[in-house]
Computed example of a mutant assay.
Amino acid sequence: MRKGARRRDWTTAELRLLRENAGRVPRRELSRMLKRGAAAVRQQAYRMRRDGEDIDLRCFEPRLSTCPSCGALRSRMGSEGICEPCRRRRQLAKVHHRISDLLAQLPPGERAVYGETEAETESAWEPMPPPPPTAGLTSYERARAEEAREIALEDWLARNLRRQVKAAQKRKERIQKKLK
């Protein structure tokens, strides 16, 4: 503290504001809200951590955006403006529609064979990625881990849907061969 400077203690309202907004609001904005210098805010957060409070001034800014089609948080949007899993679902629906059109053209005997064996054609899904352990993490680290989990889930879903699309396309090709 400078010689002759006034000391200003932290009020309970300021501490509450710091607790509620730390990690949610950038540090510069937090300093403006509290009308205190960046060093004073940093020092108070240090004291609060030392006393056992879970406070982190790092502000996590998520890179995920909401898909307009499914409403889920996604890391990548395609050229169509939707996420990869939604695009794969649409692709799968188109292939299934084409299969149903082709099945209608098959003779009744062969159509019955496909009807009986259709339930056995499901592609096996790989297991879902496990949730990250968040115990003992700061709010910033927890937010980063949750975002990484969302990205992993998106990739997992896209891989499994891609596998289903390939299987459906192969089934469609087999039916087309029978028609020729």
Rank of each mutant, 00 (worst) to 15 (best):
S75M: 04
G71S: 07
G81V: 07
I99W: 01
R88M: 12
R74A: 01
A93N: 05
G78C: 01
V95I: 15
S75D: 09
Q91L: 12
L102K: 15
M77A: 05
R98A: 12
L103S: 03
G71I: 10
K94S: 11
R74D: 01
S75Q: 11
M77V: 13
L73Y: 06
A72D: 08
S100V: 12
R87V: 01
H97D: 12
L103M: 15
V95G: 02
Q91G: 07
G81T: 10
L102E: 15
H97E: 15
S79L: 08
S79I: 10
Q91T: 11
S79R: 10
H96A: 13
G78W: 02
S79K: 09
D101Y: 02
S100Q: 14
P85C: 03
M77D: 01
C86I: 05
S100R: 15
G81C: 02
E84L: 00
R90Y: 08
Q91R: 11
Q91N: 06
R88S: 06
S69Y: 08
L102A: 15
R74M: 01
G71P: 02
R88W: 12
A93I: 08
L92W: 11
L103I: 11
A72C: 00
M77S: 03
A93R: 12
P85W: 02
Q91C: 07
D101N: 10
L92V: 07
R89L: 05
L92F: 11
R76V: 04
L103C: 12
C70Q: 11
R76W: 00
D101I: 07
R88K: 14
H97K: 14
R87F: 00
S75P: 00
A93L: 09
R88Q: 14
C83W: 14
R88E: 13
R89N: 06
R76S: 00
L73D: 04
G78D: 04
H96M: 14
I99L: 09
S79G: 02
K94N: 08
E80T: 14
A93H: 06
C86S: 04
